[in-house]
Design a protein around this nucleic acid. Structure first.
Lengths: 205, 205
DNA sequence: GGCGACGTAGACAGATCTGTCTACGTCGTC
DNA sequence: GACGACGTAGACAGATCTGTCTACGTCGCC
């Protein structure tokens, strides 16, 4: 077993990653975590003085891990695009990467959105980490857009909103998410289709 | 006080509405609920045999109440539009209504998204109710689009995704949400701007 | 060889959770 | 005037929660 060869800290963190993501950070008790990780209470509390510390470490860990996966998925799907496709539909890799994610059996939404919903104001760090995570996500989306794209920054931000909407949508409707992917594709195309005048013009209020 | 004049059941449900939304359904215990509502345990459990029953009732109640508010807000903002504006920017009322919501001090995201995140698979009814709620939201957005709008159904669905993304975004970044509103406006314009060929064309996979 | 980091086992404390229980009082309605 | 629905007060059970405690063992390193 590779699991036993790892350090106790890694085992705890990995178990937390699985259980926190699957069942939620609030629903998962430390007793359960300890039993599943195969450590004792003293060992657990020596590494993570409180459960809140573990929650923070979990979110940081999840951030690293998910971003790595996500950026690799974007790159993989971008590789399959021709230069013309990349010009015409630069956000297609985003749609395809999310579709891959949603199709995973263990999919249960975004750990950061879920944690914010669970913890609320009880642990303000959670919102901060979630906010940073969403910033990194926006940046990854931004990198798909050509350097000369109009309204580059806002378009990336807008695409992230649609992505987040798709993420929570795919979580609630746990059945097939074809409709969601189709709608997400529509947004990504609408946001990057050539247009004669800027969309972001003055607002009416 | 109007509160004491209402029936015990109404008081419980209203207190649940406040506390469940503010602190989350899992974080709020029945003892707290009972104390705040000013009833006793027997009364509480006579009306709601289990906390799960109350959670279901809360979500149904929240759905009614929020949809009523939301549709009124849409109508109010649509009223301020000229016929030309309504043609050119039919989703503007959606953006403005959400901006109103985000600005409320008690804003803490979508009760349905939050509940799904909190409960997970432990109470499957929650996902069902949330799914129904999101369907109603899509329908309300659909009603903003002119009858002859192209891809009417998918556009409404896509706008809902962006709306949900804005909702969770405004929750995590609890500071001002101007960026979010600007991005949401961009999506709503992009989705309804006139275009020569359909956006929803064949996909590449 | 001594010290500190890391590991094990499991009892325990104190709070909080959901839900049940007895016992009593007050209405409106048939 | 009996009955059922609704209300009050608060003790209690049993589970589960986070976190602390004593006591012992092992390893690497200075």
């Amino acid at each position: 077993m590779t699991r036993e060869t790892k350090s106790a800290r890694d085992r705890i963190l990995e178990t937390a990653h699985d259980l926190f993501y699957r069942d939620g950070v609030r629903a998962t008790g430390v007793d359960r975590l300890i039993a599943e990780a195969g450590v004792t209470k003293v060992t657990f509390y020596r590494h993570f003085p409180s459960k809140d510390d573990l929650i923070r470490a979990f979110l940081e860990h999840r951030h690293e891990r998910w971003m790595r996966w996500f950026e690799a998925a974007l790159a993989r799907h971008a590789e399959g695009q021709s230069e013309a496709e990349r010009r015409q539909e630069p956000l297609a890799p985003l749609v395809l990467a999310l579709a891959d994610w949603f199709a995973q059996p263990s999919y249960r939404g975004c750990a950061f959105i879920n944690s914010v919903a669970e913890i609320g104001d009880a642990l303000p760090d959670v919102a901060k980490i979630a906010s940073r995570h969403k910033g990194a996500l926006t940046k990854a989306i931004l990198s798909l857009l050509p350097d000369d794209a109009p309204d580059r920054m806002v378009v990336a931000y807008a695409a992230r909103l649609a992505a987040d909407g798709a993420i929570v949508g795919a979580q609630a409707e746990n059945r097939e998410s074809d409709e969601i992917i189709a709608a997400l594709r529509l947004v990504s195309r609408a946001l990057t289709s050539a247009r004669s005048e800027p969309l972001g013009g003055r607002s009416r209020d």
